[in-house]
Write a protein that binds this DNA or RNA. Structure first.
Length: 572
RNA sequence: GCGGCUGUAGCUCAGCGGAUAGAGCAUCGGUCUUCGGAACCGAGUGUCGGGGGUUCAAAUCCCUCCAGCCGCACCA
């Protein structure tokens, strides 16, 4: 179906084109009418004609009779009020459309989304929250748009620390180490290894030898390394389950995967004439990057000791993703401190012809999670906050809230609901703010049922559903007519019809928060409607109409939330 | 020093070229014998960090200054 906005835009475009081909009508939603077109003033300026006269000309040729009424206001705004007949038709189509008007991409793409990226043998902490949650929401949004998403979890599973980690594993014994790694204190494992490395020369020596063995492909060393990696992947999966994140073990393609490609990366760069040796390291100097002394800044592909840095594996990953996976678009959901590094990697990949201009490649940045003191979120004692601890605390709070309101659920059902609420609180708080901004983590506020929160949206959804549970006769979708006599009905209808634009906007800008804003607005429109328009108590056609509006609202909330990775429980 | 990000109501945040700058929370006042009151309606508050400029129109674009955060060659 063609959305309401799109219908209006198309009609306006014809009229604007008649005066100047391609002139933008600048169509927006409005508080004065339903929509307003602001493009007249700019066009009038270009034509050197009085704006109101241009507006009159446009209205004359505007074919909107079956859609909306128009009037000129102020200096030349076109205020559009959609007709009830048109709304009725649109809602009828919406009701019959499982996608609620959201179109699928005309040209589905293969999209690689790189997100989460925790480190093997280390605990996941708040630092991984945003990449994981935002990345997963984008993956779901892209999938719903009809794209083929290839999720990549670029875990840190290689490098010099693995020498000491493996030696520590050997010291502990594999059985003991395995249980530590899976159940308990991952950071403790890492810290112990580190402190032995720092305090014991013997251990340091063994660790270094172990790194060499690892890089040399020694089978026993690789076996031990696999123990570490597999334990970690199991642990990651548990965290992803807790968060309801779609990443699976198959999406884990860590740094180690690119090892066998690094040499050829270097060779290709050399062959392309991009490689420069500087202070013993093999570098590429992409244009436009300077160090603090104003000298060209290198991307170090191979270190002076012969080892490869992460630039090399990032380059190999691009070459692999474009060359082998045939990615047509790549998103890196990675913290903003990596901005320069990634820019350089992308620049080099372009120079090396691994990254054609036709492939959109974007660094999707995000701000920091701050504590109540507005500094980087840490525990009271100054340690990083573990993701699992964060989720568990949210679940406990959800429990308390459920008890307070006297839930009739208990046991597993109650726990499941508490989990759903906790996840909604954490994810929605993260997704509903502009991605690049820092935000203050305040569990109390996030999990509240009032305000712009995940649980509020879930609650709104549950309330709609409850209407259908109470209805004596089952609701039959499809035969409703929408008279929209009450203002709250009309407002809700307009909200329901605006889903496609909200979705498209979130997708195009890689900003899930635009969808959040939309859903919150829709929920508010619904509660106003709910307050003033009795549903079950009304009769006949009016009852059918209101039930149909409720049905659409429930579906819209559920769809919107699901695409953000948030559950919409039918009852709370 | 260079580069990037940020600075909007008491608090948390939207808005990023259009008509009097919005929401949530908090505050105050109403509604309602409530299809789940964890509701709805209404009210107040802002040199949109400061200053210049571009434009018919600037919180939004450009320049500059101030404040804060982050990066700037071998750890990923």
């Amino acid at each position: 179906m063609t959305s309401t906005y799109e219908t209006l835009r198309e009609r306006l475009q014809v009229a604007f084109d008649a005066l100047e081909m391609g002139a933008d009508p600048v169509l927006r939603t409005s508080e004065r009418g339903d929509y307003q077109a602001n493009g007249v003033m700019a066009l009038a300026k270009r034509l050197s004609r009085p704006p109101r006269e241009v507006a009159a000309t446009i209205i004359e040729s505007l074919d909107l009779a079956d859609v909306a009424t128009v009037e000129v206001a102020g200096p030349g705004f076109l205020n559009l009020t959609v007709t009830t007949e048109f709304l009725d038709r649109q809602l009828g189509e919406l009701a019959a459309d499982e996608r609620l008007g959201v179109a699928t991409a005309p040209n589905p793409k293969r999209v690689v989304i790189d997100y989460s990226a925790p480190n093997v043998a280390k605990e996941m902490h708040v630092g991984h929250l945003r990449s994981t949650v935002i990345g997963d929401a984008l993956a779901r949004i892209y999938r719903f748009a009809g794209h083929h998403v290839i999720a990549r979890n670029h875990v840190g599973d290689w490098g010099t620390p693995f020498g000491m980690l493996i030696e520590h594993l050997v010291d502990l014994g594999e059985q003991a180490a395995a249980s530590t790694l899976s159940i308990g204190d991952l950071d403790g494992f890492y810290r112990e290894a580190r402190s032995k490395f720092d305090s014991s020369d013997a251990f340091k020596g063994r660790s270094r030898a172990r790194v060499v063995a690892l890089q040399g492909g020694d089978p026993e060393t690789l076996r031990l390394w696999h123990v570490l990696v597999n334990q970690s992947i199991t642990y990651f999966s548990e965290v992803y389950d807790k968060l309801d994140v779609t990443l699976s073990a198959e999406d884990v393609v860590g740094e180690s995967y690119y090892n066998h490609l690094l040499e050829s990366v270097v060779e290709d760069l050399r062959a392309a004439g991009l490689l420069v040796e500087s202070e013993g390291a093999l570098c590429v100097f992409p244009e436009g990057f300077q160090n603090r002394d104003g000298e060209p800044l290198p991307l170090i592909v191979r270190k002076s000791d012969g080892g490869y840095g992460y630039a090399a594996s990032d380059l190999a990953a691009i070459r692999d993703r474009v060359g082998t996976l045939h990615a047509q678009e790549m998103l890196y959901v990675v913290g903003v401190p990596q901005a320069q590094h990634l820019e350089m990697v992308f620049a080099v990949a372009r120079q090396a012809d691994w990254l054609p201009d036709s492939v959109r490649c974007e660094h999707v940045t995000f701000g920091n999670v701050l504590g109540p003191d507005h500094k980087m979120f840490k525990t009271r004692s100054g340690e990083t906050v573990k993701l699992v601890a964060l989720i568990d605390e949210a679940i406990e709070r959800a429990f308390v809230i459920l008890d307070d309101r006297g839930t009739d659920l208990d046991g597993d059902a109650k726990y499941l609901l508490a989990e759903q609420i906790a996840r909604a609180a954490i994810k929605y708080a993260d997704l509903s703010t502009e991605r690049q901004h820092d935000y203050v983590f305040d569990l109390e506020r996030m999990i509240a049922f009032e305000g712009d929160t995940g649980p509020y949206l879930q609650y709104a959804h549950a309330r709609v559903r409850s209407i259908f549970r109470r209805a004596a006769t089952p609701f039959v979708p499809g035969d409703a007519h929408f008279a929209l006599a009450a203002p709250a009905e009309r407002s809700l209808a307009l909200g329901l019809l605006a889903m496609p634009e909200a979705f498209t906007s979130a997708l195009a800008s890689l900003q899930p928060h635009r969808l959040c804003t939309y859903l919150f607005d829709l929920a508010q429109r619904f509660t106003s409607f709910y307050d003033t328009c009795p549903v079950l108590a009304s009769e006949g056609a009016l009852r059918e109409e209101r039930l149909a509006l409720c049905d659409l609202t429930a579906r819209a909330l559920e769809l919107g939330l699901s695409v953000l990775g948030i559950d919409a429980p039918p009852q709370m």
